[in-house]
Amino acid sequence: MDKLYVLCVDDQREVLNALTQDLEPFETSLMIEECESVNEAWEVMESIDANGDHVAILITDQVMPANTGVDLLKRAKSDPRFQDTRTVLLTGLATHQDTIDAINTAHLDNYVEKPWSKEGIHQIIKVLTTKYLLSKGIDYNEYTEVLDQQTLFETLRKTT
């Protein structure tokens, strides 16, 4: 079974703790990693890729010291290794321009405002994991716990 990672990036530990706590139900199928900065996140992403594993979902805060979340998303999208990585901007403080940038240049999949709801983030993880599995052609039967049936059916219907 391929190792699928969900990377959470936020410079506030309290936020990281709360977020990973909400993601715990998925830990049987997905690996959760926490990073406190964009640079750290990039190192972790490279080492995951070097091990032959997948960076499936990248959830990042926008406003952080040094590089912003959008910087990270842009960098990921322009790197062939992370072309299929699904992205979520999770933020309480993104300007209008940041958001436009994120959508236009970083091809953001999802924008979530803080405070988030547990159910909302669960749904997003399921949809994005499903999309990732399908775009990578990974056998989704091993990941039934994190699949979103509707996304699965719709995608399959379109392709067949």
Binding site: N17, T20, E24, T28, M31, I32, E34
Partner: peptide, 11 residues
Amino acid sequence: LSSSQTRRLSK
């Protein structure tokens, strides 16, 4: 230990 347990304990 499960993946979730090692992640949590390491923190």
